[in-house]
């Protein structure tokens, strides 16, 4: 059984393409449409890594990261922000909330897999 990655993005096409690339690389994937949906899907599930968008309705990425970090079961789970925001302030905000890293869109499959390999150990 492969390692499981949780993908949180309100864009169906983004969820689809990231899932495709990860499944192709041998990972199991769970996806969620926003932070709230992701929190309900986490709920005790064994996750090796989380990839999350920042701009989402209902619960945005920053709030989701904070809530994940407040859950003792996922205190050290790597969280990578997936965003078009390349501004330093947004990265810093995410890092302060507890994110482990970020991927700036657009990215190549290799960049995505490299960063997942790096974090999902």
């Amino acid at each position: 059984m492969g390692k499981t990655v949780l993908i949180v993005d309100d864009s169906a096409s983004m969820r689809q393409l990231v899932s495709f690339a990860l499944r192709d690389a041998g990972y199991d994937v769970i996806d969620a449409i926003n932070g709230k949906d992701a929190m309900s899907k986490l709920n005790g599930t064994k996750i090796e890594m989380v990839i999350t968008d920042l701009n989402m309705p209902e619960m945005d990425g920053i709030e989701f990261i904070k809530q994940v970090r407040n859950n003792p079961g996922y205190k050290f789970t790597p969280i990578v922000m997936l965003t078009t925001e390349s501004q330093e302030s947004k990265k810093q905000e995410g890092k302060q909330a507890g994110a482990s890293g970020w991927i700036v869109k657009p990215f190549t499959p290799e960049q995505l897999i490299d960063i997942v390999k790096k974090f999902a150990r």
Binding site: S11, M14, L17, F20, T84, K105, P106, T108, P109
Partner: peptide, 12 residues
């Protein structure tokens, strides 16, 4: 996979 990944232009 590269083509599918390039579909992220849609999200952008």
């Amino acid at each position: 996979s590269s083509i599918v990944i390039s579909m992220q232009f849609q999200d952008i």
